[in-house]
Structures are given as structure tokens and as C-alpha cells.
Write a protein that binds this DNA or RNA. Structure first.
Lengths: 114, 114
DNA sequence: TTATATACATAAGAAAATTATGCATACAAT
DNA sequence: ATTGTATGCATAATTTTCTTATGTATATAA
């Protein structure tokens, strides 16, 4: 995935947004969901995902519940209240950045069309 | 600019695309152009820009001409043939990534609308 | 003479990835 | 039997790509 090296900076937003939509998810599930939504084009690596989840939890945006499923451990993450607020902030930031990017790279682009 | 920390990975593409449109530009001019196009929301820092320009030149994508203008030195950059080819690759890569991002973050989004 | 603008550049440090590795269970294939 | 693939967690070493700070130099406005 040559595309993959562009995730930089958007992973936290992806995690928060998916958790807003899905209530609770575990790490591996997040990697599969992203793979599914992007037809396999974006693959979240564990080395990026787990440190990011731990940081969001340390920042008080996520909480965890550990569960046993089929003799395997799953660590479910869900949004805290602070986390729920942050989703909107991060989403606005990222969409704003993407709009600016389009203004630079695609001069004929009209922001009203997103 | 809290937005600024999201550039990661797209700076090279921005430089190449601006040079495709403007034939030749010098570093400071690029920073001003980006600032202008984004209403001051994205500011390219010198610490990011100059190393990026040097790398693109080392990779054979850009060539330089140094000129004296009003007792000041300007280093003009322009695309090489390899550089001209790379513009399309990088643009497709970035636009593809943005589309995938929208698929993850904005489930109702339709790629035909860009 | 101080601040701002123009114009280049590099060095130190931080952030956020990739790549590699490790542990553990389950199931399919050779 | 044992090798590969999938599920599920995690961390360490390294690399990429920024930010922040610093340096040099000229010009102009306050």
C-alpha cells in the first residue's frame, strides 16, 4: 500500500470517529473495519494502532473493558464524555485541512461540493 | 494554526503541484502562495520547506537556478522531466488517500462529488 | 535602533509512523 | 506433525517528517 504512508496525523481522528459510530470496538476490529471501508487500501499497523489507543486512553478520551471471547482476550474501547466532544473538534480540524489541501492542489475545486 | 500539524506527508505533493502550475518558484514564494491560497490557515515553515526542496532536488525531480534580485539571492526551482511525471503519481496517491479518508469518516459521502 | 519583510539554511528535538519481534489461541492445509 | 493463516494483544528500534530555534544577510518602516 503506497497509499498507506499518508495516514500521518489522521489516525486519532479515525479511531475516535469509528468509536462514535460503533459504540465500542477492540483494536483488531478497528484494523478490519478500516480495511473493509477502504477496499484493502488502508491497513492500520499494530505498531501505530496500539500506541495511539493507549495515548487516547491516557488522555482520558477512551475507556476500556477487557473480555474473554473464545479463550482469547479482547480489549474493548469506548468514548468517554471528553472523547465524545473531541470527535467533533478533530473532525472539523481534519475536514478543514483537507479543504485547504484542495484549494492548493485543485484550484478549480469548489468547497461546496464536499 | 492548530490545523498546521496535519500536513504530514503532503508537503512534497504541494511543492510539485505548485511548480507544475507556476513553471518556476523560489522557496519563500512557495510559503507565500500557500498562505494566500489557504487564507493564512496553512503556513509552511522553513524548517520543513527547505529540506523538502533539497530532497526533491537530490531525487532528481527539481532543478535550480540561482539569481540576484535587489541584492538578494533567490533560488528558483523547476520540475525536471522525472518531476513532471511524479506530479501525477503523487496527486493520484493523495487524492486516493483523501477519498479513503472520506469513506472512513463520512459514510454518506459519495466519491463522485469531488 | 527596533521590528518587520524578504531570502536562504541547518540543527536539535518531538511526533507519528514503519518494521520487527514477541506471546498466545485456533483452525486449515500439506 | 508442522506449517501457514487468522485472531488478538503488546513493545522496541528505527525512520520519516514535522516544529522550534538559531544563524546569516539585505531593505524598509516605525
Amino acid at each position: 500500500m503506497s497509499n498507506n504512508n499518508l495516514i500521518k496525523g489522521s489516525l486519532q481522528t479515525i479511531i475516535l470517529k469509528l468509536l462514535e459510530e460503533n459504540d465500542r470496538m477492540y483494536g483488531y476490529e478497528i484494523t478490519q473495519k478500516v480495511k473493509e471501508l477502504t477496499a484493502g487500501e488502508i491497513k492500520i499497523t499494530e505498531g501505530a494502532l496500539y500506541p495511539a489507543l493507549h495515548k487516547l486512553e491516557a488522555d482520558g478520551l477512551l475507556t476500556t473493558e477487557i473480555e474473554q471471547v473464545d479463550n482469547r482476550v479482547r480489549k474493548y474501547y469506548s468514548l468517554t464524555k471528553d472523547g465524545q466532544k473531541e470527535v467533533d473538534n478533530k473532525m472539523a480540524e481534519l475536514q478543514g485541512f483537507v479543504e485547504n489541501l484542495q484549494r492548493i492542489l485543485n484550484p478549480t475545486w469548489n468547497p461546496g461540493l464536499t
